[in-house]
Amino acid sequence: MGEPLLVQSPGVPGSPVVTVAPGWAFAAVAVLGALVVVAAMLDGALSARSAGGPAGGAARPFGEVARLMRQRRRTTVQADSLLWRIGGAGLLVAAALMVAVVPLGRWTIFDLDVGVMWFNAMDVMVWALVWLTGWGANSAYSLVGGYRFLAHGLGYELPLMFALVAPAIAAQSLNVGKVAAAQEGLWFAVWMPVAFLVYLLGVAAFSVWGPFAPALGSDVAGGVRAELSGVDRLVFEAGRYALLAAGAAFSVPMFLGGGAGPVLPDWAWVLLKTLAVLWLLVWLRRRLPAFRPDMFLEVGWLVLLPAVLVQDLLVAVLAVWRT
């Protein structure tokens, strides 16, 4: 990777990262796409291994893509096509907007002074997108999937927000680059483990992944995606992987020291750490039973939320004490 064409960042004075020319957004989307492919291959390999079949599950996503590309698009009676398509395609867009504020080492596409809030806004948008996908199809099963996602959302969203608050307090900035730079020597994941864990749960949740997958449950014929077929389904699934990858990428500047690391250049460290977190999230899918949507609210509000608030308090006290 050559040295990108730099432009001066006017917005954030003293920013530790440099804003690259807007054209590099294509490169960022390409990296996100590569992460999606890697995550899907990994999931295919793990599925094949747990089913005990012959090896080679890593190639499964490609077969699946070929199948979906040729599949005829089905539609339902009186579907609200516009909202339905917005929902299905929106996940990819939301994920791309998330990675826009993630610095790849020293370079960032969009050096926003409230980058953390930006990420949060995108993950809240996922609520609407998943719900619209479930609602637009005009099908009872999709609708039930949508309800399940909202029930999970009520449980995970506030803990996730407060988990994002902790690094921001410690860094005394909402700029993602500054949060990464504030972790000189000690990663935030180390001294705010509760916030990190809750954040990872939140990423799985807004990707409708693993224990948060009842919204796509096989007991309701695939839930939200029950009526999605062909390219629509492909885009929806890619969107889920992209959200997972974007969540993993965002955890690097927030909790894992950004590009800090020996020997390798900083952008390589960001990619490596992203891959590690992504691997963890993909692997997690098969390890845990689903969190039942009707019961998760209790966990979210009585366990996760207090835990993460105490974490925020500790971080705030430490931050005040250190200044």
Binding site: S50, A51, G52, R286, L288, P289
Partner: peptide
């Protein structure tokens, strides 16, 4: 039961 509980790993193991 395991599949409905959303535990794919254990369900795959039982199926095997």
């Amino acid at each position: 039961v395991l599949a409905l509980a959303g535990w794919e790993g254990a369900a795959a193991q039982a199926r095997r």
